[in-house]
Simulated scan of single mutants.
Amino acid sequence: MKIDPSFIWTAFVNLLSAVPTTLLITAVSVTAGFVIGLITSLVRIYKVPLLSQIAAAYITFIRGTPMLTHLLLIYFGLPAILDAVSSQWGWGLRSSSIPMIWFAFISFSITAGAYMSEVIRSGLMAVNRGQMEAAYSVGMTTVQALRRIVFPQALAVSLPNLSNSVIGMLHGSTLVFTVSVVDINAQAQIVASTNWKFFESYLAAAAIFWGLTLLIERLTAQLEKRINLYNRGGVA
């Protein structure tokens, strides 16, 4: 096999058009997943009847099955459910009108929520329980104590693992090609198929993913520095 170094740059430039799609999928899934993870972690910590058991089952199932399986279950199952409900109630909505990327949003958000739930829960449990009691003693409500005292400290503890979750979702976004969404990896395959220079195209894709990963790590380091400074009572 003869490598064409000049085509690596050509492929790199062509792949840049798919970067926004990859970043959008990652951002939406991580944001929604964080909200899901926060809710499920609080439900489990405070042992809310029934909901805590449902949350535990959800986390166990998602963590015990592959990410690609989640995507395919949503891709094939959700349209069938939506069309059946729409027909039953006479709605005009049809699954065929839903953009393919929305299936990725839903699936990856559910996946990210399960993994982030454990990260957030471990961070919350790492905060000394005495701080909640101290907050109650000065008249704070549970919500105020969580928001002003517990969450900032838990975030500082959880940030490295949350960063790993973001990177994991960035890399996992390459699975969207299975539902016909063109991300960086899918674009690399399209570019390579024109002249069969797959090695060069995927090398360019790897360089982009590496750069995005380094950027996430750098942003995390800066955020961790500011949070730790704030927790020490300094000026952020």
Rank of each mutant, 00 (worst) to 15 (best):
L214K: 13
W89D: 01
L16D: 05
F108A: 10
V127K: 04
I227L: 12
I25N: 03
I8Q: 03
A236V: 08
V235C: 06
S193L: 11
E200Y: 09
V30H: 07
I62P: 11
T26C: 13
A154N: 07
S41W: 00
R232P: 09
W89K: 11
L146Q: 09
D4P: 00
K197L: 13
G90T: 00
S173F: 11
V150N: 01
M125L: 14
A32K: 07
I98L: 02
Q153P: 01
Y202I: 03
T40E: 03
F7L: 02
V35Y: 09
Y75F: 12
G168D: 11
N228Y: 04
L159C: 07
I208C: 00
S87V: 01
A56N: 15
I59K: 08
A57Y: 06
V13D: 03
H70I: 09
S87Q: 05
Q153S: 02
E133N: 05
N231A: 03
L146R: 03
F12V: 08
G168Y: 05
V179H: 03
L212P: 00
A57H: 12
S137Y: 03
D183I: 00
M67Y: 01
V35C: 12
L16G: 05
R94P: 07
L223N: 08
A134D: 10
E224I: 00
T142W: 02
N164D: 13
K47C: 12
V35Q: 07
I54K: 06
V166C: 11
M1Q: 12
N228S: 12
K2D: 09
S52N: 10
Q189A: 15
V85L: 05
T10F: 08
G90H: 02
N161R: 15
F61I: 09
I216A: 06
I8K: 00
I110L: 14
A221R: 14
T60H: 11
G211T: 13
F76K: 09
R148P: 08
Q131D: 10
E217L: 12
L23Y: 11
W210E: 06
V143W: 08
Q131W: 00
L229P: 07
V150I: 15
G37A: 08
L78V: 13
G168E: 11
A112H: 06
L155M: 14
S6K: 10
T111K: 13
I106T: 03
N128I: 06
I3A: 13
H171L: 14
L50P: 10
Q187V: 07
A56H: 11
Q144T: 11
I8E: 03
L146M: 13
F108Q: 04
L219M: 09
T22V: 09
L124I: 13
W91V: 00
H70N: 09
P79C: 06
T40P: 02
V13G: 02
M116K: 04
S180W: 01
I98P: 02
H171R: 15
N164E: 11
G90W: 08
G233M: 03
